[in-house]
Design a protein around this nucleic acid. Sequence first.
DNA 1: CCTATTTCGTCATGCCGATTGACAAATTAG
DNA 2: CTAATTTGTCAATCGGCATGACGAAATAGG
Lengths: 408, 408
Amino acid sequence: MTTELPQGGGFGDPAFLPNTQQGIRRRNLSLVLQAITAHGPLSRAAVATRIGLTRAAVSTLVDELIRAELLVELGPERPGTVGRPGSALTVGERGPVGIGAEIGVDHLAVCAVDLHGKVRARATLESDNRGRPPEPVLKELARLVREVTGASRAAGLRPAGLAVAVPGLVARDSHTVVRAPNLGWSELDLGPFLLDGLPLSVDNEANLGALAELWIGGDPAPQDFVHVSAEIGIGAAVVVGGRLLRGTHGFAGELGHVPVRPEGPACPCGGRGCLEQYAGEEAVLRAAGIPYGEQGIGLLAARAEDGDAQARRALRGAGSALGIALSGAVNLLDPQTVILGGALSRLAPWLLPSLERELARRTADPARPKGGTVTVSRLGSEGPLLGAAHSVVQAVLDDPASVAGAVR
Amino acid sequence: MTTELPQGGGFGDPAFLPNTQQGIRRRNLSLVLQAITAHGPLSRAAVATRIGLTRAAVSTLVDELIRAELLVELGPERPGTVGRPGSALTVGERGPVGIGAEIGVDHLAVCAVDLHGKVRARATLESDNRGRPPEPVLKELARLVREVTGASRAAGLRPAGLAVAVPGLVARDSHTVVRAPNLGWSELDLGPFLLDGLPLSVDNEANLGALAELWIGGDPAPQDFVHVSAEIGIGAAVVVGGRLLRGTHGFAGELGHVPVRPEGPACPCGGRGCLEQYAGEEAVLRAAGIPYGEQGIGLLAARAEDGDAQARRALRGAGSALGIALSGAVNLLDPQTVILGGALSRLAPWLLPSLERELARRTADPARPKGGTVTVSRLGSEGPLLGAAHSVVQAVLDDPASVAGAVR
DNA sequence: CCTATTTCGTCATGCCGATTGACAAATTAG
DNA sequence: CTAATTTGTCAATCGGCATGACGAAATAGG
């Protein structure tokens, strides 16, 4: 029998540490490192007051993190106030990096992100992966990963883990893709292809895209939001208190099947009038008079930009439907913001007016300050890839001892 | 400047403890106590393996908790296996109690709950509080509180705090009722009336009702659920990972204004076709041919029980609308269960069939095991009162040191 | 019945790690 | 230039968990 508390799995879900001496030490290392990554260069004294420890205690923790190359000393701060200026600490340029990978329907991408959140290396490969057998795709991806890890190591960086974003459902705490309809994959264990020494985690791309918003989406990054993307169907990811809500069975975020008009057209899911029937890729393209296919969304964006009335009408309709569905979510969750990500960020200019109108009038509670604001992701289609890499970085921040390893 | 981490407010939200030696001690005391309250009588060894500490460490923690009268030793366990049997520990009968109070539109109630979750004392007063000025109501409530605390002390119990459930909106981390439409109160600070030595917290009754389900609702209690109640409007409380989701502005759970039919009847909130227009008290009573008034719900339940066709039809319709709105929530959140609480639990027999039908067909994802199950609260209208008392108990469990105080 | 085995609770000891208090260093205020 | 303030570090201390051994209390097996 082991502990009863929530056992973290995958990256980004901090593992449970018992309150033993070593556990405390590890947590304190994490607190110091997180304080410094989150709030720019800080002195030891500033860290100490922030996390509630004494300066002396922080000093020893910082020493350990410096030895592990996770922190570097920048030297004396600009003295602004009375007293001896502190010595600024920041995360190292030569420490660990997280490797993120993305398997898209028409591309493969890999990147390395350091503790600063900066992309330090990347590799991309255009290739139509729809219906292709998994083996060659994964071999190509493995090659890209080796390329990026090689470049990272050459730059003095240490890859700390690999996270893969997949357009499909992934079994919790496993490397197995349960089903990825757009790729035509199912029940596929990625471990054999990608496990070469690096810790591996696999997750859904919508989840990772949302986590990217949480970690690098804004300044300050929102902690409670609904992130809507439309890569496969219409997915939403709900982040509450800085934590991704995955749902009891891992199916949270099925915004596409929220009812918009209860007696609307039948949906393959068994319901009627689901959001996907109004704002799904297929429905919108049909309304815009564009054949359903590979380049549909790009074509739609181009036509809307050109002022094509039919395309714009289609997007207005989709925006209204999204607004209706999201007003339910906003009423229920009262999030800080709603973020349009993925392909939706490109279409946002034409979706937003009708979306915001519906949302505003349906969430105008007498006591509510104002209807939740809608923002457009700055990350766009980069979200899942960056989120994957950052999930590895986050795992390092959550437990620096695991990567500092046997450093003295 | 103090710490940056989430600072708990009110009961039930564990305060942040820094990772100092004392902080560890306090957390470990809490872990020991929580393990024992949650999982029946346990031996020291069982607790140790559960929380990941050594038996020796647990021994000292248990000693401290016994000195504080929070734990008692029951003596040797029934030996079932080889080895010396452990000494069973359980929470004391003579320790602290949480005092819960409820201000309803037609009654006042106060109770005392011990660490076992048992009600040890209670006092109730029927009185129509609609539109009554707050002062006399609160004076009566204060009298009931004194009655219950007095009875508790006489029984050797120590009241550890007072939590008040109010049918309205409460400002976060304050004692101030922002507005309680059914009572006709607004901007009222309860502190002056109820602060007599006991720590006070005030919260919305729907929130406390949901927390009651979390703490004493079932065996095992669900950790992720949507709790629907219909005391003022139609409120829902979302519990995720054992934590109540309050929303950025504290307005989470406004299920009543989730759109059911986007072009339906106008709602005072500014939207159209909100759930309240179909399943709100006023709408249902009108559909059932019952005048809107004090005893409306009771009358409705009675008629439905008698087989009144119009009443049953009204409830069927409300059930469908609830099912549609909830299917949105279930698709988005993938909760373990949906709980019908408060007044809805009385009406459940006639709401459930249509509700479950809508819910099942709209959440039948190919990959989803089954549509979320709907359960009816066992607590019924007792939920908020019990939840209030339990929120105090929970605060004790979260930081026993705070109440153990200067014990040796 | 008696012994070996297993598990429990406790004790003395040790060690890890945070706290305490003091100090030199580096800055601003006056 | 002095006083005041803040920083980082050091030595000493102390709190608190780990370790290992012990007696106690049960079962298993001959």
